[in-house]
Amino acid sequence: RRPMNAFMVWAKDERKRLAQQNPDLHNAELSKMLGKSWKALTLAEKRPFVEEAERLRVQHMQDHPNYK
């Protein structure tokens, strides 16, 4: 499986939080909310998630050198 990108790293915990706050929302609505929230973040706010995604990408390359 591919490593998570920055959005997916961020959305993993954010989706849980949103789902707890909005138990009646379907996954499609949660995804739309997550997309809008991600776009609203500044580059500085996204940076930790971008860095974690890069760390995961490098780790994935080391763990699976033949993955394409």
Rank of each mutant, 00 (worst) to 15 (best):
R1E: 13
H64C: 06
L43A: 15
K36A: 15
A53T: 03
R47E: 09
L34Y: 01
A53E: 05
K16H: 03
A44G: 06
L43K: 15
D63R: 07
L30W: 01
A6F: 01
H64P: 05
G35R: 15
V9F: 07
A28G: 11
E14F: 00
A6W: 01
R1L: 11
N66Y: 06
L41S: 01
W10T: 03
E52A: 09
S37E: 13
W38A: 09
E54P: 01
K36F: 15
A6S: 07
R55Q: 07
K12V: 07
K39A: 13
R55Y: 00
R15C: 10
Q62Y: 12
V50A: 10
M4T: 11
W38R: 00
H64G: 13
Q62N: 15
D24S: 07
R57E: 10
K39C: 15
P48K: 10
P23K: 06
L41T: 04
P65F: 11
N22H: 15
L25I: 08
A19F: 07
K16G: 02
K32W: 12
A6H: 04
E29M: 07
Q20I: 12
L34N: 01
Q62C: 06
E52P: 01
N66A: 15
S37H: 10
Q20V: 09
A40E: 10
R2P: 08
S31D: 06
V58D: 11
D24Q: 12
Q21C: 10
L25H: 05
R17C: 02
T42R: 03
R55S: 05
A6I: 01
H26N: 15
K46P: 07
H64Y: 15
L56M: 11
F7M: 09
L41V: 00
V9I: 13
T42C: 03
A44E: 13
R47Y: 09
E14T: 02
K32T: 08
Q21W: 03
N22S: 09
A44W: 06
W38E: 05
D63N: 04
A6R: 01
A6M: 01
S37P: 00
N5L: 00
R2T: 12
Q20A: 12
H60P: 07
L25C: 11
D13K: 02
K12N: 10
P23I: 01
K39E: 14
E14N: 08
W38D: 02
N5R: 02
P48I: 00
D13S: 09
A44N: 07
L43N: 10
P65C: 10
R47S: 06
R47G: 04
H64R: 14
K36C: 03
K36M: 09
K32L: 07
V58W: 10
M61V: 09
R2H: 06
V50D: 08
S37F: 05
A6G: 07
A53D: 03
Q59R: 09
K16V: 05
E52W: 04
K36W: 05
W38L: 02
W38Y: 01
L56W: 06
R57M: 14
N27H: 05
W38H: 00
F49D: 06
D24R: 09
K32M: 12
P23V: 05
S31E: 15
H26D: 07
M61P: 09
N27R: 08
K46H: 01
S37R: 13
E52F: 05
Q20K: 04
P3D: 14
N22W: 09
P65H: 12
D13G: 09
M61H: 13
K46D: 00
L34P: 02
F49L: 03
L56P: 01
V58R: 10
S31K: 12
M4W: 05
K46G: 00
L34S: 02
Q20L: 09
K46L: 00
E54C: 08
R2N: 14
E45V: 04
P48L: 06
M61Y: 10
E52L: 04
L18T: 00
A44H: 10
N5C: 07
Q59C: 04
Q20T: 12
N5T: 13
L18R: 02
R55M: 06
D63A: 10
E45H: 08
D63L: 06
Q20R: 12
F7L: 00
S37N: 15
W10E: 04
W10M: 01
F7H: 04
R57P: 03
K36N: 10
A19P: 02
R1F: 09
A28R: 11
A40T: 11
N27F: 08
L18Y: 01
A28Q: 14
L34R: 02
T42N: 08
V9N: 05
L41A: 02
N22E: 13
G35T: 14
E45T: 01
V50F: 11
D63V: 08
F7S: 03
R57A: 11
T42L: 03
L56E: 03
L18D: 03
F49I: 00
A53F: 04
T42A: 05
E54N: 12
E45D: 12
S31H: 12
A11F: 02
R1K: 15
E45I: 00
V50E: 15
S31L: 09
W10D: 03
K12M: 12
R47T: 13
K68C: 06
E14K: 06
E52D: 04
P3F: 12
H64N: 13
Y67G: 13
R2Y: 10
D13F: 04
P3N: 15
N66W: 08
K46C: 00
S31C: 08
P48F: 05
E52N: 03
S31P: 00
K12C: 08
